[in-house]
Each structure stands twice: as structure tokens, then as C-alpha cells.
Design a protein around this nucleic acid. Sequence first.
DNA 1: TTGTAACTGTTACGTTTGTAACTAACAATG
DNA 2: CATTGTTAGTTACAAACGTAACAGTTACAA
Lengths: 150, 150
Amino acid sequence: MTQENPDAALSDFLPFLLFQAAELSSRNFQHHYQSRYGMLRTEWRVMFHLGSTGDQTAKHICVRASLHKTKVSRAVKALEEKRFLKRNTIQTDRRSEQLCLTHQGKAAFADLTLIATKFGRELEQSLGTQDHEKLVAMLQKLITLHQPNL
Amino acid sequence: MTQENPDAALSDFLPFLLFQAAELSSRNFQHHYQSRYGMLRTEWRVMFHLGSTGDQTAKHICVRASLHKTKVSRAVKALEEKRFLKRNTIQTDRRSEQLCLTHQGKAAFADLTLIATKFGRELEQSLGTQDHEKLVAMLQKLITLHQPNL
DNA sequence: TTGTAACTGTTACGTTTGTAACTAACAATG
DNA sequence: CATTGTTAGTTACAAACGTAACAGTTACAA
């Protein structure tokens, strides 16, 4: 971490690289859900989790998506107001509700997912399929290392 | 992207993985600069860039760190008030100033960097040196793909 | 049961953030 | 030089965020 080679330290510092990569790829996708559906980043994330893993409680989404509960609470409310999501009471535990996408919500999810996967395939091509798979595997490992619970 | 295997879609979606990995690794480091130096995330990022790549203008940091200029502006102000940073006017262009860490700022940077590298080495061990290098390389490639400028 | 503790989700409040408008300095064109 | 346009950085304002306090529900031990 000397200043001899200006970029060496930066380039080697994983958290910085991860932030950068996450930020840039997130920004590139942002305008799709914003302009088409007026959704915020967190709303898209919640929708994405519901759409791809099926109905969940808010708590599940918090843990799985590493999002704060107030953030999720507000995103759920917003998605509900946009008629993208509805809540079903769970009889066995009335503290939490099962969240599920409405017909309209599923349509938006499908539409956005289509773009996302196309976007993903371009990345895969740029990196090469093998490297892409490896990258995914390593990130997953890294995540489980940082998040031993679940 | 079906719902048959609940986790498949999530796991394959790179932006999600990147966000998750970035968020978790960032959070793990957060309390160090917060508790010791009362710094916010963006302040640490600005300090990190200044410390590792040497003196820069605010604009440089914006581009290199993918941070919004208002965010950088405020972080610089905060670091200045904490006596971690000082501004030097550039004679050839008085619109921007060269930002550099003070003695105190460099000390804080060195201290935090020590923790960061220790932290990084643990990750490297967990992933394996070869994989770690490969991960870094791929993230760099990914970043340049998303950010053709610079 | 009843009381206490733990858990899920919401809300109030203060802080941080992004958008847009602004100032100041430079660049380019006539 | 004026004028027009561009760039670096700051600031006002509104939106979004996190912390902490809260209400409602469940678990569990006395």
C-alpha cells in the first residue's frame, strides 16, 4: 500500500472493487425500472427477490437481500400502492405477512428480468462463460463468508 | 429465471451478487472508521482514494471512485473540518483545488489501511491466492466494461 | 395464567443523499 | 475583447435513509 504505483493499492482492495462494480452495474440498470415503472432501487430489489424466489415474508427479504427492515417496509408499502404486490396474512403467525406479486407485479418483473438477463448475457460474453461462472461462484463464497447466518 | 429452483435465479444474477458482496464487506469494515475517527462511509472512501493514489482534485475522485460530486464535496468539507485534509489552490486552474491528506489524515489512513489489508489477507486465504487474484482481475475487467471513460 | 423476553413490522425524527439551480473560472468563437 | 458555452465545485430543497422508539404478536418460564 505504498504510493509508488498509484493504482496498485486501489486495484487490489477488494471492497473498493466490489463497490465500484456493484455501483456501476446497478446504475446501468437503474433507468429501466425507474422510467418504465417509477420504481426506486430498493423497490426493484424487493420485487426481484419476490419474483425470483417466490413469496416471502419481509423478514426473509431483509436477510436474503441484506436490506434494512425499514427499507424493506417502505419498499413493500410503495409496491403495494403501485399494485405490484399484495399481502396475505399468515394464520400461524400474525406478526408477519406473506408478500406476493400481483399479476401486474409479475408482468413488470418478467419485463425487467428479460432486460436483466439480456444484460447478463452480454457480461457473460465479455468475461467468457467459464470466467463468468467462476466469478459467480467466488462471489457466492465471499458472501457466505461474510454472512455466516442463514 | 423460473421459480422451480428458488435460489438459482438470484445466485446467477451478477448485479445482485455484487451488491450483496459489496454491502457485506463494507459493513464489516464500517465500525472501524466510524468508532475510531467518526468518519462516514463516503469520507472513508475519499480518504482512501487520496491516501492510496496521492493528491487529487475532487473531480478525479468523483470519476475514479464512482461517487457523485455533491457527495465528494460534502465529504471533503467534513474531512477538512476534522483536520484530515487540506486544499491547495492550483495556479493554472483556480476552479479546482488539489486535495491532500494532512499529517493527521495520513496517520488515520495508515491505521485504517493496516486493518483493511489484514482483513484482505483473511479473504485471500479463504478464497485461495489464485482465486483471489482472478477475482480481482475479473472485477477490474467488469468495471472497465461498465465505465469506458477514464 | 401471568409476566417477561423475543420477534416482526411500522413510524417519528434527525441525518444523509440526489436533483437542480447556482457561482466562479476557464475555453472558444465571433 | 465580448459572448457564449463548458467545467469544477457548492448549496437549497426535497426525497430517501438509518436509528431508535413503538405497537402487536408469539414463546416460554415462573
